[in-house]
């Protein structure tokens, strides 16, 4: 068992699960989307990105790309939340919440791709 692989798989999967946890629920209902979960998803996603640095293989490059996409989407979601909760006069309206959650939904898609890549990598490793 390779500890590096364990840590890598753990973070990739955790990023996807946290993202899923935040995303699920009625898209416009602020009560169903915990902001702490979004925070955790961002932090774990950033860590997963850094773990993917410096891998020269083709699959490593795609891994890094999906992670960067997820980061971008999640940071955009965080910015949208900050804007509606702190800057906009109207506060956290259902439509604002919907845009935050849908942005995180995009990140979820990228995270799913990441997980699929992880599985593909593992399976092809056993076949070899």
């Amino acid at each position: 068992m390779n500890l590096e692989k364990v840590v890598f798989g753990f973070f990739v999967l955790l990023a996807a699960t946290l993202n899923f946890g935040f995303f699920i629920g009625n898209i416009s209902d602020p009560a169903l989307h915990n902001i702490y979960e979004l925070f955790a998803a961002i932090v774990v996603s950033l860590i997963a990105t850094v773990l993917k640095f410096g891998d020269r293989t083709q699959i490593g490059a795609v891994h890094l790309a999906t992670s960067l996409v997820a980061d971008l989407q999640l940071v955009a979601a965080a910015l949208a939340w900050t804007y509606s909760a702190h800057i906009a006069e109207t506060g956290l309206t259902p439509s604002a919440m919907a845009s935050v959650v849908s942005l995180s939904g995009g990140a979820l898609f990228a995270n799913v791709v990441s997980v699929v890549l992880l599985v593909v990598e593992t399976v092809s490793y056993h076949r070899r």
Binding site: V43, L46, I47, V50, L51, F53, G54
Partner: peptide
Amino acid sequence: VLRRMRAPLIVLIT
């Protein structure tokens, strides 16, 4: 270089 920056970056993020 990118590989060597992994540990410090993760510490910083955490």
